[in-house]
Write a protein that binds this DNA or RNA. Structure first.
Lengths: 312, 312
DNA sequence: CGGGTTGATGCCGTTTCGGCAACAGCTATA
DNA sequence: TATAGCTGTTGCCGAAACGGCATCAACCCG
């Protein structure tokens, strides 16, 4: 089912790989064929699409415009294919997800497992990235659904939902703070803390708050893995911070205690956004999973706000 | 700039014309070429796209799915083209509008005239239809912007805005009702009325109200042209009904008086919707005009609600 | 029962496409 | 500085796809 000119498929491959020869390898054709199709495209558009650097190709402004169009075409072709397939009962396809690490410990595995229990023919590809990388992967068409910190998102993305979870400290059960109901940042900083590196979204949440404090103590440990940070906290190394998305896992882990964080008397929120390319209609199976994801995150948001109600 | 397979262009032409030979004439190619491309498409999709009737071709279910995809592709190609063109300063293109008759007397001509004053290179195509035909033309990709009565719209259309205007009676200045501030339906029906035919949206607004009345008098005249109905009213033939969109024109026309209609003590609203295909990004020049249209209709809505405030 | 459609097919010249090999330009490494 | 390895581009040629012409079978309407 390949009823689009080879040009746009070749263009798409070249854009992704950044090189004509690499694209040719992926496409299993000769590089000369790819080169010619690109030249023909440029002649028809009437403007160069790539800047030829010695090390490969980079999109020009017009090239980026065409890339957007080609992405729209190919993604909509995917949707059409899946629509036709679902007509004959074959509900199959691959959902590609890009998300930040907070989701990996329970939300995503739970959801994927349950979804595959019902729809065996739908497979998943997930990639964990930093928030801005998630949005970029979505823009570049490398993922269908993105979950990231709700920062400013580019106009070519659509925010499907916005859920807020409370940020908190994670300490070992024996930690002096462990018996409190909530903690403030000052109270945490009295102890060794395990700080997130800038790649993690927690960094960008805590950084402005720490900057407001009169003194900025040296962090004991810095890391870029939430898992590692939590394991360090469990061993009593210090205070870690994370959004309370792993409420199930944490409550099962008897070594750890989650303490909602307060700042100037009000909770510290971590806003999670679910994103999708705006100029796109999702295939039915992707849309279905997206709805489940939104519902599940809504449920967790509600559940945690009752478990840890905002201090008045 | 034709970088899509001939297949999809041919398919698009066949869908619009409903015949292979007619499509071939439009495309300036031999009918055999068109026939072969369609057959190839069907082979690649793995399912027939048209039902061959003796008199022409009709889309199958799969064919309609492909039609949707092809429409998305071609409309997005248009947008891409205009984006590239606007990069080199050429802000040009054609905005295609389908709307109901109420717009023709002042809203649309005013707006188009003023827009063309600023953007000389943007041309317009407008087609007046009934509300359901407007929506259908939009769905079939034959118009960019649709303005119609806000009924239930198909899911492939997006309602950009919803504006409500007051429905009223139009009578000659010498008419016995002309001195009133507002009128009720009963008061109007005491006189000869000029009824709208079902093709006009006014029919669908008034019909349910008339059906509620104890007695349904014979209409004096039925017509399917708002213009004609208004001219008849000006000659004292009877009471006409219309939405108060031509406030400028009516206030200039000294022969006529507009009387807001009340029913059971509350105004009778005529909801006007502005529609666009959902799975589509508009070219910049179309988007620009759309914004002006929404703003203008919003202005009129506000102006008329102050001119004729709802009776409390 | 013919005259007008309709879409489909066989044949054939033209166009396009893709693979192979060679080329020039650049970078990194020896 | 020379060389090996990479890049994209270009001639050449065979293969595949496309389009035009003429023809055919099926259908509708008068």
């Amino acid at each position: 089912m390949r009823f689009h000119s080879p040009s746009i498929q070749y263009f798409h491959a070249v854009r992704r790989t950044g090189s004509i020869r690499a694209a040719a390898r992926v496409l299993n054709v000769a590089s000369s064929a790819v080169s010619r199709q690109i030249l023909k495209l440029e002649q028809e558009v009437g403007s160069p699409l790539f800047e030829r650097n010695a090390r490969g190709l980079t999109l020009t402004t017009v090239g980026e415009m065409l890339a957007r169009h080609v992405m729209n075409v190919l993604q909509d072709l995917d949707r059409f294919r899946s629509d036709v397939a679902s007509l004959s009962g074959a509900w199959s396809g691959t959902v590609s997800i890009a998300c930040i690490e907070s989701l990996t410990e329970s939300v995503l595995p739970d959801l994927i497992a349950s979804h595959r229990g019902r729809a065996r023919r739908v497979s998943f590809t997930t990639e964990v990235k930093g928030s801005s990388d998630v949005l970029e992967a979505l823009s570049r068409g490398e993922a269908d659904i993105g979950i990231a910190m709700a920062l400013r998102h580019p106009p070519d993305l659509r925010q499907v939902a916005l859920k807020r979870f409370r940020l908190g400290a994670v300490v070992a059960r024996e930690h002096p703070l462990a018996r409190r109901k909530t903690v403030t940042l000052e109270q945490c900083l009295a102890f060794p803390v395990i700080n997130a590196l800038p790649e993690l979204s927690i960094f960008h949440l805590l950084q402005p708050l720490i900057a407001q404090l009169p003194e900025t103590p040296e962090p004991a440990i810095q890391a870029n893995s939430i898992d590692l940070m939590r394991e360090l906290a469990a061993r009593g190394v210090g205070v870690a911070f994370q959004t309370q998305l792993g409420i199930n896992r944490l409550s099962r882990d008897s070594r750890l205690v989650f303490l909602p964080l307060d700042n100037a008397g009000s909770p510290v929120w971590s806003d999670l956004g679910i994103y999708v390319r705006a100029e796109r209609t999702l295939p039915a199976y992707t849309e279905s999973f997206l709805q489940e994801l939104v519902r599940e995150l809504g449920d967790r948001e509600r559940r945690e706000n009752t478990a840890y109600p905002p201090t008045p």
